[in-house]
Measured scan of single mutants.
Amino acid sequence: MAAGGDHGSPDSYRSPLASRYASPEMCFVFSDRYKFRTWRQLWLWLAEAEQTLGLPITDEQIQEMKSNLENIDFKMAAEEEKRLRHDVMAHVHTFGHCCPKAAGIIHLGATSCYVGDNTDLIILRNALDLLLPKLARVISRLADFAKERASLPTLGFTHFQPAQLTTVGKRCCLWIQDLCMDLQNLKRVRDDLRFRGVKGTTGTQASFLQLFEGDDHKVEQLDKMVTEKAGFKRAFIITGQTYTRKVDIEVLSVLASLGASVHKICTDIRLLANLKEMEEPFEKQQIGSSAMPYKRNPMRSERCCSLARHLMTLVMDPLQTASVQWFERTLDDSANRRICLAEAFLTADTILNTLQNISEGLVVYPKVIERRIRQELPFMATENIIMAMVKAGGSRQDCHEKIRVLSQQAASVVKQEGGDNDLIERIQVDAYFSPIHSQLDHLLDPSSFTGRASQQVQRFLEEEVYPLLKPYESVMKVKAELCL
């Protein structure tokens, strides 16, 4: 049975990233139509530049190519590739079939990587351009969430054990800070992308030097003109047959890092959902379990974690691919890159769409948070109580021993009897502590235990987050809708 299948058929496997999760716009960027249309555009740009620099290419040939950029006979191309065992030459023939007058000058002087690699770089750039505003929107939604809850005390956790208090907004800023680093890295790697350009079979530009009869300047002009037509500021000066596969490492490393950030955020949300302090959106008709109707599973956060793990592992592909590119190139890269580049971007696209949807509907339960604080705060307040007693004339050592005994009794009630923490009640009825009984409410005010959390939130948002989001103001209103 021949390899390949009808990918629109229910009898043929289709990647869930495309069929179930990723956005239509990201799927289109990695589609065959987008790819092969870009090949034709690159052939047109090459012909236009070659004509401008004096090669015998007519206006009629150029116009014929322009008129057929979208006229792609995919069936013919597939048949040609089956016959020739070469995808680029299959599309040269297919393009030439609908451009008979231009057929002889299509791909003039070029090698397969002229269309293959340059198209990949265009796709990487455009895919990054799709991700950047999506990530900015996630940051914006979380920034709104953090600002609104900047002063809401909550129990902090280290080692997932109760620690000092923080605020809900401050905790959210930990998430935002990681995503801001990801946004900066995505922008950097996007701006650092260079075009492969017009380089020939081993990167020496020998074929173009021959076409222009040894004119170095025209060869350099050709490279520059096509690079500018493709919208790049610069091209690699040095290439082998391909652009260095280190570029793929750079791009997928940034995406993998984004995956790590999203995994951490969504894990926190899942843990908070278990504590009943916070939940992701839950639709009115949504079913959490087929057997347990009360369940409210954090399905979206779980999906993000599941896909983020996949995204983090994909960076190993370009690392290994770059390491086995012998001399000017081997074909070890080809099949692998067809999979890992598309999957990385479709996965990143999915987790950003999902995280935006989550961040637009996060639900906080202040009463649950308050109750958990009441359970733990008495123990945390013991040092403040000791200091207040010393100020009232008591002995630190005597007070410490009193607190120690009462704390152990209260802990026994919590752990052995399943009761509430009654340390404060014990202190309130103990005559030894009568000098500070009137101060206990103040000493137990949760806001006095959150330090500068709310001020940190305000400063972080104003100095770091809002300036970073400013270039994306025009796209901030787009909502994230999930079908599944």
Rank of each mutant, 00 (worst) to 15 (best):
A3G: 13
G4M: 13
G5M: 11
D6L: 10
S9H: 14
S9Y: 12
P10D: 10
P10Q: 14
Y13G: 13
P16L: 15
A18G: 14
A18T: 10
R20F: 03
R20Y: 03
Y21A: 05
M26H: 10
C27R: 14
F28N: 09
F30I: 00
F30W: 11
D32M: 11
R33N: 02
R37L: 11
W39R: 03
W39F: 06
W43G: 01
W43F: 12
W43V: 03
E48D: 08
T52R: 11
T52V: 06
G54M: 03
L55K: 12
L55M: 06
P56S: 05
I57V: 05
T58Q: 08
E60C: 11
N68I: 02
I72V: 06
A77K: 05
A78F: 09
R83Q: 06
L84D: 13
R85M: 08
H97V: 15
K101L: 13
A102Y: 02
G109C: 00
T111G: 04
V115P: 15
V115M: 12
T119F: 07
L124D: 03
L131H: 12
V138I: 09
F145R: 12
A146L: 00
K147C: 08
K147T: 09
R149P: 02
P153V: 12
T154G: 03
L155H: 04
F157Q: 05
F157L: 06
L165D: 00
L165A: 05
L165Q: 00
T167S: 13
V168A: 09
K170E: 04
I176C: 12
Q177N: 14
D178K: 02
C180K: 12
C180E: 03
D182H: 06
L186M: 12
V189W: 11
R190Y: 05
D191G: 07
D192E: 13
D192M: 15
L193V: 07
F195V: 07
R196P: 03
K199D: 04
T202Q: 12
T202R: 01
G203D: 00
A206G: 09
S207V: 12
L209D: 11
Q210N: 05
L211R: 05
E213P: 15
K218A: 09
E220F: 15
E220G: 11
Q221T: 11
V226T: 00
V226H: 07
A230T: 08
A230P: 00
R234S: 12
R234D: 13
A235E: 11
G240M: 07
Y243C: 07
Y243R: 06
V247W: 10
D248T: 04
I249M: 13
E250A: 11
S253L: 09
S257I: 03
A260F: 08
K264V: 02
T267W: 00
D268N: 13
I269N: 01
L272N: 12
K276F: 11
E279D: 15
E280M: 00
F282E: 08
E283K: 13
Q285D: 04
I287Y: 00
G288I: 06
S289F: 02
A291Y: 06
A291T: 05
S301Q: 03
E302A: 01
E302T: 14
R303T: 00
S306Y: 07
M312G: 02
T313G: 14
L314Q: 11
V315G: 10
S323R: 04
S323W: 00
S323V: 04
V324S: 08
R329L: 01
L331N: 09
L331V: 09
D333T: 04
R337E: 00
R338W: 00
R338C: 01
A344Y: 04
F345C: 10
L346W: 09
A348D: 04
D349S: 09
N353V: 10
N353L: 14
T354L: 10
Q356D: 15
E360R: 03
E360M: 11
V363D: 10
P366W: 14
V368T: 05
E370S: 15
R371A: 11
P378R: 00
F379H: 08
F379S: 04
M380G: 03
A388I: 07
A388Y: 05
A388N: 10
V390R: 03
G394D: 09
S395D: 12
Q397T: 11
E401T: 08
V405E: 15
V413Y: 08
V413R: 14
E417A: 11
L423M: 13
R426Q: 13
R426M: 07
I427W: 00
V429Y: 00
I436S: 06
D441G: 11
L444M: 14
D445H: 10
T450A: 07
A453Y: 05
Q456F: 06
V457H: 03
Q458E: 14
F460L: 13
E463V: 12
V465M: 08
S474D: 15
M476V: 13
A480T: 15
E481F: 05
L482D: 15
